Simulated scan of single mutants.
Amino acid sequence: MPNVAEDPAISTLFPVVAVALIDREGRVLVQRRPAGKMMAGLWEFPGGKVEPFETPETALARELVEELGIVVDPAVLEPAAFASEPLAGRHLLLLLYICRDWAGTPDALHAEKLLWCRPEQLYDLAMPPADLPLIGRLKALV
């Protein structure tokens, strides 16, 4: 069993939460990362990092207010899938949730653009490597 202190991939675990907002037509919301940020121009599921002492669901609800201006009750977030990927000297653990119920209209507060699309259309978008394996699972759940 690896020693956490000796394995940099374990000692630098970077937990991130994301959401597949699904509208009544079965479309998923993605946002384009703005210029000046890592992976600028790529499409991603909205979300962000989990701060110390936050649950993933609480972190995601906070991020959705900050990024999209919408309010989500953490209790309605359904765990869907996860991805594990090395990222810039850390190890990303991306937890994807599904949400079909929120208050407000999503707005691109920290992104270049928002796009509603069918899950199969996500394959046509340039997305971060950790998001790609989540598409197949998402298609099965929608």
Rank of each mutant, 00 (worst) to 15 (best):
E54G: 01
G104L: 10
L96W: 07
I70P: 07
R24K: 02
H91N: 14
A83Y: 09
E67D: 14
P8W: 12
V30S: 02
D107G: 00
P106Q: 11
L109N: 03
L132P: 01
P8K: 11
L95Y: 12
L125F: 09
V30A: 02
H110E: 10
L93R: 13
E63L: 02
T58Y: 02
L96G: 03
W102L: 08
I98D: 02
I98S: 02
L125E: 13
S84F: 12
S11A: 15
W102K: 03
K49R: 14
A130K: 01
G89Y: 14
A103P: 00
L64N: 07
C117R: 11
R62C: 03
G47E: 10
F14R: 11
G104S: 11
V72L: 00
L77M: 07
I10A: 14
R24H: 06
V4H: 06
L94N: 11
L60G: 07
P129D: 10
G26D: 05
P74W: 10
I10L: 15
T105S: 10
G69A: 02
A81S: 15
G26E: 04
L42K: 15
L29E: 09
V65N: 00
E67K: 15
A75M: 07
L94E: 12
F45T: 05
R90L: 08
S11T: 12
V65F: 03
H91D: 05
S11W: 11
E85R: 01
V142W: 11
E66Y: 09
H110Y: 05
A35G: 06
